[in-house]
């Protein structure tokens, strides 16, 4: 029982980086189990997470069939998809360090006024001597870059946040 499993572009990592793998199984549930990605596709109750869609051959989403119990046969192609949205917005998390002479300047406000970015302070420690701010900047890539350049030119030290610091 060899089933071809295909994943959409947004899901390649589910299949270990490849876009197509061969797997055995008689139901979608078995196939998903053998992909060892069940916990990513399904929630705690074992239901398929709602932003994924699975189709057998050119058929309907399995949700409208028998869900994970939907049978598959030798030679079937199973497609796992998620919706994609497009766009090139980015979000950067940054540590900004304001020195004593900059600490009372409203630079984050200025950035929000001057550039089409959303500023979101995630963490901050500000005294009269120094200000350290964990800031998330989101918007179009070029706009975010210009906002960062503005901070740098103003003399603020800007460092990317290492993972998990603010979460």
């Amino acid at each position: 029982m060899s089933i071809t499993v295909r994943a959409g572009a947004a899901l390649k990592s589910l299949l270990g980086g490849s876009q197509e793998v061969q797997i055995d199984g008689t139901t979608i549930g078995e196939v998903v189990e053998r992909l060892t990605i069940r916990e990513r596709l399904c929630d705690d109750t074992g239901k398929l997470r709602r932003h994924f869609n699975i189709h057998v051959n050119d058929g309907e989403d399995i949700r409208l069939l028998q869900g994970l119990d939907t049978p598959v046969r030798d030679g079937d192609t199973v497609t796992i998809l998620s919706a994609i949205a497009g766009g090139a917005d980015v979000a950067r998390k940054l540590w900004l360090t304001f020195s004593q002479e900059l600490v009372d300047k409203p630079l984050i406000w200025e950035v929000a006024q001057k550039f089409q970015v959303v500023t979101n302070i995630r963490q901050a420690s500000v005294s009269k001597d120094v200000g350290i701010v964990g800031l998330e900047l989101s918007g179009e890539e070029d706009e975010v870059r210009r906002a960062i350049d503005f901070f740098l030119q103003a003399g603020v030290s800007v460092e990317p946040v290492e993972r998990d610091v603010m979460e």
Partner: peptide
């Protein structure tokens, strides 16, 4: 709300739904 996180803080192999067009 508009939301967009980066791999920087989330780990490398994120599946999901993102941008391009």
């Amino acid at each position: 709300d508009f939301t967009c996180t980066t791999d920087m803080e989330r780990g490398e192999n994120g599946e999901g739904i993102t941008s391009g067009a």
